[in-house]
């Protein structure tokens, strides 16, 4: 090859990227492993001359920590609820969008709109929608001044207002709000990918099915879903990975307390746990980050394994 003489040149082109990667990517990987296995490690302590013993104490501590179990539980629950709901909804919407002609582009644009938003900002809008003004310190007789638009709608159908996010709200109500918001946020990306997949399916399959008089349902389960399975696998995997890193959507709705007033940290997640420990307890934060990485790795492997068996290429 012409270039082989100039291989030093390639390294010059790569130099800026490599220097930055060494500082901000490679060193953190090594350092996280180191800190995670030094018991009770903290950077401040290390600067002060403290020494730490090698061991798996951080991992033990993290797993025995009640807060961590709450975070793990919240994260898992959100994943298990939002991934299937948003995938099924997105699949339905994409299939319907693919079946219509007039208004298709307009509707497609509307469904993509939530993608280009700021999750903190729109989280505040959702918080306002689920808010309940005037009820915060209210007894049974106190008048609710305004119950928030969602409660107004519920009231319109004759249902009682629910305390969704304010002080004294239930964990279940909080979770419903989070699931609604996360699903709303996840839809645009999934619809985009799935619709793209649908549009690339060869029309001949459908023509053949028509000739054979195959029912709509059968066409859907035997042609559409199998041919779409690579995209389905892709959106499910990326959504699981994103779901395990859920954090800013909760900050958007509940603020940095990660929970309703009076019960902070109730909705904290794995990532939230890492951030809480980041400034002072680096050993613990590192152990938690490695656990998070392990979970994401395993879930991805399971997903890949399942999709390899079920995916039709």
């Amino acid at each position: 090859m012409v270039e082989s003489k100039h291989s030093w040149k390639a390294w010059i082109y790569l130099a800026p990227a490599i220097v930055l990667l060494l500082i901000f990517t490679v060193w953190p990987i090594i350092n996280t492993l180191r800190m995670a296995f030094l018991e009770g490690y903290s950077t401040m302590g290390a600067v002060g001359g403290a020494t730490y013993e090698f061991g798996i104490g951080n991992f033990k501590q993290v797993l025995e920590y009640k807060d961590f179990l709450t975070c793990l539980g919240n994260t898992m629950l959100l994943c298990v609820l939002t991934v299937p709901i948003s995938t099924i909804l997105a699949l339905l919407i994409a299939v319907c969008l693919n079946a219509i002609k007039p208004l298709q582009r307009l509707l497609q644009t509307i469904f993509f709109l939530p993608y280009v938003t700021n999750s903190i900002a729109i989280g505040m809008v959702f918080a306002a929608m689920f808010n309940m003004v005037g009820s915060a310190f209210g007894g049974e007789n106190e008048l609710i001044i305004t119950a928030g638009i969602i409660n107004n709608v519920l009231g319109f159908f004759g249902m009682d207002p629910v305390n969704w996010i304010n002080a004294g709200s239930s964990y279940g109500a909080n979770m419903v709000v989070m699931v609604v918001y996360i699903v709303w946020n996840a839809l645009p990306f999934k619809i985009l990918i799935l619709l793209g997949g649908l549009q690339s399916i060869n029309k001949q399959y459908y023509d053949a099915a028509k000739v054979d008089g195959t029912s709509r349902r059968r066409v859907f389960t035997r042609i559409t879903v199998p041919l779409l399975s690579p995209m389905l696998a892709y959106v499910v995997i990326t959504d699981f990975i994103g779901g395990f890193k859920e954090y800013s959507s909760i900050v958007g709705i509940f603020g940095e307390d990660m929970g309703p007033t009076g019960d902070p940290r109730r909705l904290n997640t794995m990532v939230g746990f890492i951030y809480d420990a980041l400034a002072n307890h680096q050993g613990r934060a590192s152990a938690a980050a490695l656990i998070l990485f392990g979970i994401i790795f395993v879930v991805t492997l399971i997903n890949l394994y399942v999709s390899k068996k079920k995916t039709h290429y």
């Binding site: 953190p28 350092n31 996280t32 980041l278 490695l290 990485f293």
Partner: peptide, 20 residues
């Protein structure tokens, strides 16, 4: 190797980068 690092959650880097 570079592509491999994409699998690691960013929070893992943040802990050290904060100190750096």
């Amino acid at each position: 190797a570079l592509l491999g690092t994409m699998m690691i959650p960013g929070e893992l880097f943040t802990i050290t980068n904060y100190a750096t």
